[in-house]
Design a protein around this nucleic acid. Sequence first.
DNA 1: TTCATTTTTGAAACGATTTCAAATTTATAA
DNA 2: TTATAAATTTGAAATCGTTTCAAAAATGAA
Lengths: 148, 148
Amino acid sequence: MDYSIEFLTRRLKSKAIRPSYQRIKVLEYVHQKGGHPTADDIFRALSGDIPSLSKVTVYNTLHTFVKAGLLRVVDIDDGEKRYDVTLADHGHFQCEACGTIFNFRVNIDQVPIEGLERFEITQKNVYFKGLCPNCLQPTANGRKEEAR
Amino acid sequence: MDYSIEFLTRRLKSKAIRPSYQRIKVLEYVHQKGGHPTADDIFRALSGDIPSLSKVTVYNTLHTFVKAGLLRVVDIDDGEKRYDVTLADHGHFQCEACGTIFNFRVNIDQVPIEGLERFEITQKNVYFKGLCPNCLQPTANGRKEEAR
DNA sequence: TTCATTTTTGAAACGATTTCAAATTTATAA
DNA sequence: TTATAAATTTGAAATCGTTTCAAAAATGAA
């Protein structure tokens, strides 16, 4: 995919966010890496490229992106928040053994709901937990496979 | 309902939890009060009855209860964890204006899911956010109604 | 009662996040 | 280009819910 500086800059400008170097780098990281990185993951990954980078900047940037709708917060983990570039509606599964978070398709709007008749719903989150296939099936050598 | 000391004691013993005074009081509080109290809500509410009460005891007790299946954790809120005595499967809605959490009926097992074919699911959480009826409709005097 | 185990407690530690104010960078207008 | 205002970045310190720790107190069994 095209995650060039130009593309990322345009994406930021389209949301009225000034395309600072730090912001472009954060946006590039979450797009290229994918998955569900924490603020600290991002900070550590970019510290090499941007030696002056402050963790506060990462927090500020993530807040800005979430508010603009460029990222979704995944708050399934007990400790740190995670960030997801996949904007389409989907559920999150966290493996209780390895901690990995997986996306899955779920059409929550198809499910019958009772008790929210006069409510205005703006956000729907589906969080599952359990064991992923890797942790469920130990390999021949007796150890569990690496989490993807 | 019957939330007598005897009932609560029996309930604890049935889960092999020693019915200490503190534990009985915490269990009594969450049953009588209902809703989705935080550890601090419980601590402040019981401090009068149990002047020596430590917050650590509340945390310990809540952990014990959750592990025994007497309570469910509701982790919809950004800050503190909340605890729910309603054990039957249900979703949680948090009003973004007043912060109140409401339970609602949802049969998550009826929803078609794709991508978790080889996973073992042990926990399913449905968290919605938005505005509750109270916050949606300002009253005649111009102020919003009190949250339930 | 005695002894071992469990529970409770306050103080301190922890860790992710936020707040703050100063320094730097950027955009805009003159 | 320069001046000026506004936005962004930064490190240090603060915050806050929760956990860890070790000692004191309570409890149950022998």
